[in-house]
Design a protein around this nucleic acid. Structure first.
Lengths: 237, 237
DNA sequence: AGGATTTGAGCAAGCGTTTGGTCTACAATG
DNA sequence: CATTGTAGACCAAACGCTTGCTCAAATCCT
């Protein structure tokens, strides 16, 4: 029997920030996709913030706090205390708390959208592509960007309307990629049900994994990818 | 192609309270389980609050607000405005805002736990039992108790520690029922994977349904139950 | 020297909650 | 039949605290 952590409820309970181990890279989804390469590339061309800069320090600290305490429970003073920057100074780097939230979400989806596209380019055959979708999303959810990704899923309602509109475009592009592959997979009789319904059920299943899945336990991210693949295809190979 | 509502993101965006149609009863899960009978029984013996009493009005209004705006975004003044009771008077019925949240969660799980047990008594055979688990949980999530159930899943972190401990007992009993049936199902080779992992994946998939599933669309709750059943067994009958 | 950054005091608004009192319905009392 | 007692429901105002955010002055860095 595999150990997969405590009950989802108990897992959710703590407010303290735990430093969970980051899952290992999935070889089958393309070894380069989860490397630092893509991230560094995006930092270099200015698409995402350099984590070493003050802006980046604030950003990553905030993402972690938002994830573990919730956006509304996290005060600007909390971010200040954790970064060693006084509360007032935060607003030199960001216009508002909302802008921090927006940036956390925006950059996490930019990074993962890029990873998704690159990984798909490297995947040949529909089955491989499907597995890539799942592996990348599970890595987005539980890997290094896990905190930011969870914030995007869970704190959506706290975004300002303008920020929602912007990020929605990126999310729709992301969903479009999913649906495209799923529709092809269905055409080949690979799926257990309609692509749009399947996508939403799988999305829910994967969004929920951070509440119970821990890297370093008996279950690896690759194992988890296998299980979600089974949900999608019905086949247990 | 079935219509299953807009994107999950867009669905989540609104803050206004929409009156969605309540899904119709699943005949296959036992016709009596979703009727008013069990609810009335529990009201009569004092297990849950009479919705006609002032306490009950506050409770249901709060559940709806918590669901659509979030617990922290919902002020006691909001609840007052919506019920026609002045903010201060809320505290004549509840000691604190936290007690309202706790009561919303507690009563929704008491009701649905009772429904689950009754429905299982009426189900014969493992396949029927498995389908019952799914049907009852989907009804808890999207039926009349949907708002309260979503609050329990989504606002857990905002509960006081004592309240968490109490409700955790009920949730563990609920999870125990699920695991018991799943373990038997696995013994008969009915499942696609390990019971504990499957349960968590299915839980996530079902928790997410309120963000995209609407009763009255092309997809019924029974149809949805079929799809989740397929996820669990891999079979598309 | 001069722009970028940091500081720390502080503001206005909103929050959950408390308080002291009123209103209404109804049963008990004289 | 009129009066009093009682208890639940509700009201109006305000208290103490926290919040996101501002700003003028001080400090750093090149």
């Amino acid at each position: 029997m595999l150990s997969v952590g405590g009950s989802p409820v108990a897992r959710n309970a703590g407010h303290a920030i735990e430093c969970d181990p980051i899952p290992t890279v999935s070889e089958r989804a393309g070894p380069l996709v989860f490397s630092e390469e893509i991230r560094n590339e995006l930092i270099e061309n200015g698409s995402i913030t350099d984590p070493k800069s003050p802006r980046g320090v604030v950003l990553n600290t905030a993402a972690s706090l938002f994830r573990h305490k919730g956006y509304l429970q996290t005060t600007v003073r909390d971010i200040g205390r954790e970064t060693g920057i006084l509360p007032g100074s935060i607003f030199h780097h960001y216009r508002s708390k909302d802008e921090i939230l927006r940036t956390v979400m925006e950059e996490s989806i930019i990074l993962n959208l890029t990873r998704m596209k690159r990984a798909l380019e490297q995947s040949q055959g529909l089955e491989a592509k499907l597995r890539t979708l799942i592996a990348v999303e599970l890595y987005a959810t539980n890997g290094e960007t896990g905190e930011a990704w969870s914030v995007m899923v869970g704190e959506w309602r706290n975004l300002s309307d303008e920020a929602k509109a912007d990020i929605l475009k990126l999310r729709e592009e992301y969903e479009g990629i999913w649906l495209g592959v799923l529709q092809q997979a269905q055409a080949e009789g690979m799926l257990t049900m309609e692509p749009d319904i399947l996508r939403k059920l799988l999305a829910g299943a994967m969004h929920w994994t951070p509440t119970w899945f821990r890297a370093g336990g008996g279950l690896s991210l690759d194992d988890l990818t296998d299980r979600v693949m089974i949900l999608a295809t019905g086949r247990r190979d």
